[in-house]
Design a protein around this nucleic acid. Structure first.
Length: 264
DNA sequence: ACATTGACCTGAGAGC
DNA sequence: TGCTCTCAGGTCAATG
C-alpha cells in the first residue's frame, strides 16, 4: 500500500525525527526482511553513526549515513515507520529498531514482510540496477517525456501506470485515483489513448500524487472530487453517485466508475 | 522485448 | 465462539 505519497510522508517523518542523532544500537528482530546485508553487518555499519539526509525515488526511501553509504528502506504493502520513546513498547511487527542516544527509537514495521531493507553504496546505481523508471513527481518528467515513455506499449493503461520501470511510485490505489480523475477506464489499451487524453492523464497523475501528499493521505482531507476516500466495497462515485465497480486488471483489483470512466 | 500471471507473505474479515 | 477461506498488494521469477 505504501506508494509514492505514503513514502514521501515517511521521508518527512524520518527527516523530522531521526536525523543527526548518534545511533547507539540496531536491533533486527526479523532477519528475513534484510536483503543482501546480514544483521551483523547492518549493526556494524550503523552503530556509532548518524542519519544525515534522505532521498526518495518512487516507493523507495534512501537514508544517507555520515559516510558514503545508504540505508535503503522499501515498505512492501504494510510497511511503515514509528519513532517512539524507549519505555514505550514497539509495535509487535517491528522488524528493525534503530536506537538513538537520546532514548528514542525508530522502528521499521512490516506485518506482511513484503518490504526490504538494504545497505547500499550508491542510489543511482541501485535505481538503475532495479530498473526503476523516473520518479513520477520528478520535475524533469514533462508531458513530452511521459508520452515518449508510453509510446508503443501494448498493455492496459492501468498496468502501465503501475509499471515501476516506466514511471516509479504508482501502485494499485493511486493508479485507480489517477484514472478516475482523468476519466479513463482502467482496461483501456495505452495505444487507444490520444494525445489529449494522455495529456489529461499526465496532469492528473501529477495532481493526484501532489494532492495526496498535501492531504497527508488522510481520507478526510482529500478534495471531494477524488476517488481515494471512496475506494472500497460499496463505495460511491463522488462524481455521479453510482456504486463503484471492481475488476481484476493485471492481477490487481481496480476500482472505477462504469459511468464516468467508459471504454471507447 | 514486452506483457501477464502466480508466488511470496500474514492479518483482517467473511461465512459457516 | 472458533474454524476455514479469501482477499489485500509490491515485486519478481516464470510463462506467454
Amino acid at each position: 500500500m505504501p506508494e509514492l505519497p505514503d513514502v514521501e510522508l515517511y521521508k518527512q517523518y524520518l527527516d523530522a525525527t531521526s536525523l543527526h542523532k548518534k545511533i547507539e544500537d540496531v536491533e533486527v528482530t526479523t532477519a528475513k526482511i534484510l536483503g543482501h546485508v546480514s544483521s551483523r553487518r547492518l549493526q556494524m555499519r550503523l552503530k556509532g553513526h548518524r542519519f544525515q539526509s534522505t532521498k526518495r525515488h518512487g516507493k523507495h526511501l534512501f537514508v544517507a549515513l555520515d559516510r558514503p553509504e545508504w540505508l535503503m528502506l522499501h515498505f512492501g504493502m504494510t510497511g511503515r515507520l514509528q519513532y517512539f520513546k524507549r519505555r514505550q513498547k514497539a509495535d509487535p511487527h517491528a522488524r528493525m529498531i534503530v536506537h538513538f542516544v537520546n532514548d528514542y527509537r525508530l522502528a521499521y514495521i512490516s506485518a506482511r514482510m513484503l518490504g526490504r531493507i538494504e545497505l547500499i553504496r550508491d542510489v543511482k546505481e541501485f535505481v538503475s540496477k532495479k530498473k526503476l523508471g523516473i520518479d513520477a513527481l520528478d520535475v524533469s518528467l514533462d508531458f513530452e517525456a511521459f508520452q515518449q515513455l508510453l509510446k508503443n506499449r501494448r498493455g492496459t493503461i492501468k498496468s502501465a501506470l503501475m509499471n515501476q520501470a516506466i514511471v516509479a511510485g504508482i501502485g494499485n490505489v493511486y493508479s485507480d485515483g489517477i484514472l478516475f480523475r482523468a476519466q479513463i477506464h482502467p482496461d483501456t489499451p495505452v495505444a487507444r489513448l490520444g494525445r489529449e487524453k494522455l495529456n489529461l492523464l499526465f496532469r492528473e497523475m501529477k495532481r493526484v500524487l501532489r494532492t495526496a501528499i498535501r492531504c497527508r493521505v488522510d481520507a478526510d482531507r482529500f478534495p471531494r472530487s477524488y476517488l481515494l476516500p471512496h475506494r472500497d466495497r460499496d463505495g460511491q462515485c463522488p462524481r455521479c453517485g453510482r456504486r463503484l465497480a471492481t475488476k481484476k486488471v493485471s492481477g490487481r483489483t481496480a476500482y472505477y466508475c462504469t459511468n464516468c470512466q467508459q471504454k471507447n
